[in-house]
Design a binder for these strands. Structure first.
Lengths: 343, 343
DNA sequence: GTTAGCACTCTCCATATGAGAGTGCTAATA
DNA sequence: TATTAGCACTCTCATATGGAGAGTGCTAAC
């Protein structure tokens, strides 16, 4: 069924009013506050039709209406008016980012900003570096048979890993190995997923058979292991959920937070939406995770030097101010892209 | 007033029963379950005296009794029977720690273990390195005028920091500087707080006046800045609070969690108790933070190679199984000490 | 010093009641 | 045909009421 103009106006009004008050919206309120030139009876009739078509629902007969997931979806896709952050807000965000001279800090600040500005949960996925070309690998001997391996990629990402070796590696040998590796990296572009394949092959040509079966080879294998690129998740503002009346009951809250505590599940879900567009909005049951079926997720990709690197997002009740959530998420992801590209 | 034996037994019984059921404890229950050879009337009389002396209180006349902070304190100091973890539990903990080949992971696992085993919030403070002697400082050039500085201490702690330099530093010069610094470090023991004082003085003798006023000197200053030793806090199990009936009401929960979200406040508080003994127990209002006045904190120091390095702890309602909380916290802090010492 | 007995207090739960908000339906109207 | 006024009906929510049950405090007796 095609919605007529009045129905669209009413739907938008219900979404807006419900977001504002968190109470079912009555026909009278719409007539009063949204200046439709129709009587409550007419509005009621339209609402009845909207309900029959699954855009609205009632908690019980004789109560006002609440948007369904479908209602929200229609609103987001067709009715919502894009919101732009005020210049003042933008300046404040930039100001806060000035403190982040460091990668970890930038991630943390981002999740804090998201949660503070939206009163929801802020989520930041650390950059994935799979598609990054490795520019340089260095070894730093820390003593006690520990070696710090530092990998620098073309996008400027730095990955570190301390490796415990089961025997001593001579300093000169370590230097030789690192020089050899870096000369190979200079010769051809190798991305981080292929380190193991390509470099170990090359190294086999220059290391002795004895070394090949010793801890030195084991060490090299561990160096090139892609588990560098840990899926780190930065979460902030879990408490914010409690501000929303839909989570007044501790059970519901508990249910959601149990998912949140398992940071990885949420991260994997968000990664699953990567590549489908700059900003993705998942409303209620559209998502697969049953713990957050009365929540919506607004995610936005960020990039480093033009390469898509990760995503940030906010998680809150389906009853949210979508235009604002989207503008905040997008603006922050743009800023984060800029900052990470400068690092 | 000196408590007689029966009063002590009754107090211990009330603490135990109240911990188990979270309901005010009646005289009848104590007579039944704790095999005192006295009638309920007698027990009631003793409870009346305990209440008059501030060891117990009643939510209302004609309800059972609940321990006060003073009651818990007396129980912890005088009545409680030390609890030892079962061998099976110890093995499980050791098993889980086997996954932690890495510093960050060890910290995270520790906070998870604490929260899972105690059903409370697990807190882990990262090691402070102030009293550590610096063994070695290395510079790794990352390109784009970024230099990774790695400091290794005698306890084996590794601190890293990426520094953005405002101009290029010649590779040989960087090598010279690092060699010079390391030779000085070998000559005398310098702890991390004194890096700035001692090394900059020494360096002034070997760098040119031009360098002294350039970005190179600035870089060195930043290298030796002790902000390396960031007070990182690992928190786990915020949801656990909700399992406890005392936090059923969202307001109370909110109040506490607002503190928890400010990780640093909690960290600073715990640091404040460092040095007063291996295990410190703060019950209810004994603590200064008003947000957690109906909570108790059990903290235990851990060390690295015999040097006190930091603390772990659990935070939960004052109504907790103190003997078990203590044994878990202590056992885990010992294991953590071992693991960090091996790194 | 201890205890049986009992009146008294307070909570908690189920039930009842009425006001208020909002709808659905119908018949009248433009 | 679309819109609207009017009204009966439904459901929630806040408040009041009463009775059962748990537990105490007190007193008198042992």
């Amino acid at each position: 069924m095609e919605l007529n103009e009045r129905m669209k106006t009413i739907l938008a009004a219900v979404v807006h009013r419900y977001f504002t008050t968190a109470e079912p919206v009555s026909s009278a309120i719409i007539a009063q506050k949204y200046h439709l030139n129709s009587s409550t009876a007419t509005i009621r009739h339209e609402m009845y039709l909207l309900e029959k078509n699954d855009y609205l629902w009632q908690p019980h007969t004789s109560s006002g209406r609440i948007p369904t997931d479908k209602g929200y979806r229609f609103y987001v896709d067709n009715l919502m008016i894009k919101n732009y952050l005020q210049e003042k807000e933008k300046r404040e965000i930039i100001q806060i980012y000035k403190k982040s001279k460091e990668f970890e800090k930038a991630m943390k600040i981002t999740s804090q900003l998201l949660s503070k500005l939206t009163d929801n949960i802020g989520v930041v996925l650390s950059p994935i570096i799979y598609n990054n070309i490795v520019k340089n690998i260095q070894f730093v001997s820390l003593g006690n048979n520990r070696i710090l391996t530092v990998i620098v990629t073309d996008a400027g990402l730095v990955c570190q890993k301390i490796i415990n070796v089961s025997g001593e590696i001579n300093k000169d040998r370590l230097n030789y190995l690192s020089n050899f590796i870096n000369s190979k990296l200079a010769e051809k572009d190798i991305d981080i997923t292929n380190l193991n394949n390509i470099l170990l092959d090359e190294l086999e040509k220059v290391i002795s058979l004895q070394e090949k079966f010793s801890y030195i080879y084991k060490f090299l294998e561990e160096c090139f292991d892609i588990s560098y690129s840990e899926n780190k998740v930065y979460l902030d503002g879990r408490i914010n959920l409690m501000k929303h009346p839909e989570f007044k009951e501790t059970d519901k809250l508990n249910y959601i937070l149990s998912l949140i505590e398992e940071e990885n599940v949420l991260a994997t879900t968000i990664r699953g939406y990567l590549g489908f567009g700059k900003t993705i909005i998942i409303i209620g049951k559209e998502g697969k995770l049953k713990e957050i079926q009365n929540c919506s997720l607004v995610t936005s990709e960020y990039s480093i030097k033009g390469k898509s690197a990760g995503a940030i997002g906010i998680l809150g009740p389906t009853r949210m101010d979508y235009p604002r959530m989207i503008s905040i998420t997008e603006y922050i992801s743009d800023k984060l892209s800029e900052i990470l590209s400068e690092f």
